[in-house]
């Protein structure tokens, strides 16, 4: 699936929820259920220190497909990471660079992507894009 298609699918899923409680419960479930990163990659090199929560990101390139694993010490942050990974992981670097995060607004989680939240997510997206830039030059 393309990034756009995955984003539409997520927006669709979230449209089933009536209120914030259900959205949050879903995110918390996502956060709890997924082992998002291999322990060996939870290193200081891969850490993004938000003032509030910590985020770890690791990138892998296979052929021309870039994959991400990530984690956080806060569960809501981790739930959002799960959604972001679903969108960005397993894609071409160029498509990752072209993608935006507007769908986060549509699913009612915009406040978590605000820089003032300092939860590490904004930096995580930046980091994902940096990896995409770096690997894109490698592929060429």
């Amino acid at each position: 699936m393309t990034i756009k298609e995955i984003q539409e699918e997520i927006v669709d899923e979230f449209s089933m929820f009536d209120d914030w409680m259900q959205r949050y419960e879903y995110m918390i479930d996502l956060g709890k259920s997924l082992p998002l990163i291999d322990e060996q990659y939870k290193t200081d090199d891969n850490i993004i220190k938000g003032c509030q929560s910590k985020v770890w990101v690791h990138a892998d390139l296979e052929g021309d497909i870039l994959s991400f694993t990530a984690d956080s010490d806060a569960i809501i942050t981790k739930g959002i990471i799960a959604i972001l990974i679903r969108v960005y992981s397993g894609q071409h670097p160029k498509d990752i660079l072209d993608a935006d995060t507007n769908f986060i607004d549509e699913i009612g989680l915009k406040e978590h992507l605000s820089p003032t939240r300092a939860n590490g997510l904004v930096s995580m997206i930046k980091q994902i894009k940096m990896y995409a830039i770096a690997y894109q030059t490698q592929i060429k």
């Binding site: 509030q52 929560s53 010490d73 806060a74």
Partner: peptide, 13 residues
């Protein structure tokens, strides 16, 4: 062991 960020986010709601 709940992270303070998680509690704060829900309280904000």
């Amino acid at each position: 062991s709940i992270h303070p960020y998680d509690i704060g986010s829900i309280l904000d709601k």
